[in-house]
Structures are given as structure tokens and as C-alpha cells.
Computed example of a mutant assay.
Amino acid sequence: MRRLGSADYRDMPWKNGGGVTRELLKLPHPSDPARFLARLSIASVAASGPFSVFPGVDRTLMILEGKGVALSFGATPEVVLDQALRPLAFPGEAEVRCRLLGGPVRDFNLMVDRAVAEASLAVLHLAPGEALGVAEGWTVLLHVLEGRASVTGASLSANETLWLEESEPQALRSDEGAVVVAIHLTRRA
């Protein structure tokens, strides 16, 4: 179990040079040190433009703040993300163009090397005093967006991340209410 906070996060330039993202966590690739197995980040997007291309990577994106974006995937109709906390999954090798819908946005990004692992992402809204089971897994990542939550005695505040490896079933609890992004990584056979 590893707890991460703002002192552990790094501001990184986008691969295409179009902006900067705050990298919350980058799990090392098991066989290629130049790549990552999984990466969590929060990006501030101030202008419309192309996304960076990541061949072999499955991406999930969701809006945290702002009016939203419209994403173009080649000749298909735009996909509009104008509601916060609604994840959209797409392949990293897709050529994606982003159009802001009314000013800057902040978005949450999950990227996973699809040859090694697959991921599920859920946004959990915990009422005060509520506890939810966190399934066991190869790797479980929890990021608190709002409020406070705890797992096995590890207390997390807003903008903190918990990395659980080979985790047993546990309970995610909140005394005052919380919004938590829960990610489960599973090895591919």
C-alpha cells in the first residue's frame, strides 16, 4: 500500500508539446523501462487541439471541471463530454482532436498498456458514514476528488491517491462524504 499526495505528483509536458499534465502515478512497465504499464494524470486544457497519440494504450478520460469538450475521432461524429465525472474510453492510437465547449477544462486521464493489463474505472459517491467494498485485485488505485475517505486505516483527503498491490477485499469508508475514482487493473493472460 502506498499513499501519494501533491509532493509525489509531477508536472509533465504533453507528448505532443501542446500543454502540461499533472502526473499522479506512473506504474512501471514490466519489460520496457521506456514505457509505462499504467498512468494516472489530471490535465488542464486551455485550448482546442489534437491529443497526443499513444499506440497500444487504452485511454479513459473524464471531465472534472469546465463546460466540457467535443472529441473528433476521424470521420465519425463528435463525442461530446459536457458532464463531469462521465468516463469515456478510447484507443490511444486514435487520432483525436479536442474542441473546448466554453473555456478551459480540467480532466482526469487513465492510460493502460493493453498488451499487459486491462482497467476498469468507476466514480464512487460515498454519503457520510457510508462504506463500500473495494474488490480485491492485482492493482487497485483510489484517487479522492472530494471529501475524505479511508481504507484499512489509511486516511485520504481530496487530491490524494492510494496504490494497493495484490489487495485483499477491503472497505472504503467516508465519515463526511467523498467522491473517489476507483480503478482496478487486471493482468492479461
Rank of each mutant, 00 (worst) to 15 (best):
L124M: 09
V134C: 11
P87E: 10
H125T: 00
P169F: 10
F90N: 07
F73A: 02
L61P: 00
A127K: 03
L172T: 01
E78F: 09
L121G: 02
S72W: 01
T161G: 03
P87H: 09
R99V: 07
V96W: 07
V69Y: 07
A94H: 13
I63F: 06
T76R: 15
V80M: 12
V69K: 11
D82M: 08
L141F: 14
R114D: 05
D107I: 01
P128V: 00
A84M: 01
E65T: 02
G68L: 04
A115G: 06
E78G: 11
M62G: 00
L101V: 02
T139Y: 06
L101T: 01
W163A: 08
R59G: 04
D107C: 02
E78T: 10
V105R: 15
A171Q: 15
L101D: 05
V80D: 12
G102P: 12
V96M: 08
E166Q: 14
L110M: 14
A149M: 05
R106G: 02
R114M: 07
L100K: 14
E65H: 12
L110H: 12
A119K: 13
L124I: 01
S120Y: 05
F90Q: 08
V144M: 05
A119E: 09
E136M: 08
A154D: 11
E136F: 01
L132G: 00
G102A: 14
T161D: 08
G137I: 09
V123D: 01
E65A: 06
S120H: 11
A94W: 13
L156R: 05
A131G: 09
K67N: 10
V134N: 10
D113S: 13
L88M: 08
P77T: 02
L142F: 13
A127T: 00
P128F: 01
L124A: 03
L121C: 09
V140R: 14
A94V: 02
V134E: 11
K67I: 06
H125F: 03
L124E: 03
A131F: 04
A131K: 15
P91V: 04
E168L: 05
R99C: 10
L126Y: 05
R86T: 07
P91H: 13
F108T: 00
H143A: 09
A122T: 08
A84I: 01
L162P: 05
V134R: 14
S72F: 03
W138F: 15
H143V: 07
G102Y: 14
G102H: 14
L110N: 13
A94Q: 11
S155W: 09
A122Q: 14
A75M: 05
E166L: 06
G137V: 09
V112T: 13
R173M: 04
Q170H: 10
P77D: 07
S174L: 10
A171H: 12
G66H: 05
R59D: 05
P169D: 04
E130W: 04
S72M: 05
P91L: 12
R148V: 03
H143K: 13
V112C: 12
S150I: 00
R173L: 08
V112F: 09
T161S: 12
W138H: 15
E165I: 08
T76S: 15
E65S: 07
A149G: 00
